[in-house]
């Protein structure tokens, strides 16, 4: 007996999910951050963020098709984290690091928060 392990399966599927997002296919929620709107798939959001997991596992909220985030959340920071969810690549720009980290704290993305902490420490002379 043997088993074939397709080593790039996870990244191939994620790439396709990102293509679906970019073409707005089967996206089922709009995230409002200040005045900016981001379309996404609830399943991807809740797989990556503790906050979205809590929201979409709540039977009263799981059918919402729009979610407004705290107005203090930075839309640029959110955009970077949303791209990370769909690509596994986190663009850590020095000018946006605090916005990214604070948004990651708000979204309960603990591993990203740890990574931001390490990035800040390593950049600190």
């Amino acid at each position: 007996d043997s088993c074939i392990q397709f080593t790039r399966h996870a990244s191939d599927v994620l790439l396709n999910l990102n293509r679906l997002r970019s073409r707005d296919i089967l996206t089922d929620v709009t995230i409002l951050v200040n005045r900016q709107q981001f379309r996404a798939h609830k399943t991807v959001l809740m797989a990556c963020s503790g906050l979205f997991y809590t929201i979409f596992t709540d039977s009263h909220k799981c059918n919402l098709n729009a979610i407004s985030l705290d107005p203090k959340v930075d839309p640029e920071g959110f955009a970077i984290l949303l791209d990370f969810m769909y690509t596994s690549r986190l663009a850590l720009k020095e000018s946006l690091i605090m916005a990214i980290m604070n948004t990651a704290i708000y979204l309960q993305m603990d591993h990203v928060v740890d990574t931001c902490h390490r990035f800040i420490k390593s950049s600190d002379p």
Binding site: S2, H9, D12, V13, L15, N16
Partner: peptide, 20 residues
């Protein structure tokens, strides 16, 4: 999969959805 030999396949695993 204990005791089962695993063969690694490094090629694409699913079709590629076009970007637009």
């Amino acid at each position: 999969y204990e005791g089962v030999s695993t063969i690694k396949e490094t090629g694409r695993s699913v079709h590629e959805i076009p970007s637009d």
